[in-house]
Simulated assay, not measured.
Amino acid sequence: MHLDEYMDAMQKGEKSFLDTLYEMTELEIADKNKRAMNACVKVANFPFIKTMDDFNFSFHPSLRKEEIIGYTDLRFIENVENLLFIGSPGVGKTHLSVSIGIEAAKHRKSTYFIHCNNLIMQLKRAQIENRLESRLKFFSKYKLLIIDEVGFLPIDSDTSKLFFQLISNWYEKHSTIITTNKPLSHWTETFGDAFLANTILDRILHHCHVIKIVGNSYRTKDLSKELVRDDEKSN
């Protein structure tokens, strides 16, 4: 792409052959790295591409912006720690988890995003087809696993055991980012078994940063304003 420009510069004496060769090699390496990063992001299965720059921190003053952005240095992955985002629907849990995941993927740390219900269905299907071990190994190959919306739907006791197996395989080997709309005290409702819920939490929370997001849904903020205006008009 830059060949003609560099050939021109050489003919005019603006660049030496060695300078041209060096700069073109640097451009090729940068382009190769960019393609590799894009490939890592693509295979991570993100539901959308959003970065920290796209997040409106002013809408959720309870969040410490410096702390959240700090996770993009990826030291939590090097330290084999977990991140747990807790908050009601629409507060930005998924957005933040994806933003951190994208940063990890860009730095060649194998990353995979999956919705909890999809994960559960895959594990159940694998168990029925006698290939549960291979499916667990599939998830274990990633440096960072992002499990979105744990607790959105209840999980029966038998299925909870499959989730426990996944978390146990992952424990102190790789990092996990989990988003949930359920307070930790309600996880027994999610997993249908108090012992299993506490055992799962014990492994997740052992090396974990817990981020609670308090506030209203960002997705419905405009609708809320519209409803207020309608109420004012009717009064």
Score class of each variant (00 low, 15 high):
19 D>N: 04
104 A>E: 03
113 F>E: 11
196 L>P: 08
56 N>Q: 11
149 E>Q: 04
88 S>W: 00
80 V>E: 04
112 Y>C: 08
79 N>P: 02
68 I>N: 02
134 S>M: 10
228 V>C: 09
155 I>A: 15
206 H>S: 09
127 Q>N: 12
130 N>C: 04
43 V>D: 10
205 L>K: 03
165 Q>S: 06
231 D>F: 14
142 Y>G: 04
52 M>P: 02
60 H>C: 07
115 H>I: 08
93 K>T: 05
166 L>T: 06
130 N>V: 08
117 N>Y: 10
134 S>D: 12
30 A>L: 03
77 I>S: 06
205 L>G: 07
116 C>R: 04
193 D>K: 05
143 K>F: 06
164 F>T: 06
50 K>W: 09
47 P>L: 02
40 C>S: 14
95 H>C: 09
158 D>L: 10
229 R>D: 09
20 T>L: 01
175 S>A: 01
84 L>R: 01
208 C>S: 06
150 V>K: 05
42 K>R: 07
98 V>S: 05
170 W>S: 13
164 F>Y: 15
233 K>S: 08
17 F>I: 11
9 A>F: 08
182 K>I: 14
17 F>V: 08
93 K>S: 11
203 R>A: 01
235 N>T: 13
199 T>M: 13
7 M>R: 13
223 L>C: 11
207 H>S: 12
116 C>V: 07
233 K>H: 08
135 R>F: 05
199 T>I: 03
197 A>S: 15
168 S>N: 10
179 T>Q: 08
12 K>H: 14
16 S>N: 09
132 L>F: 13
19 D>R: 11
124 K>A: 13
180 T>R: 10
142 Y>Q: 07
156 D>Y: 09
73 D>M: 05
52 M>G: 05
155 I>R: 08
15 K>G: 01
75 R>Q: 12
190 T>E: 15
191 F>K: 10
89 P>L: 06
8 D>L: 09
149 E>D: 14
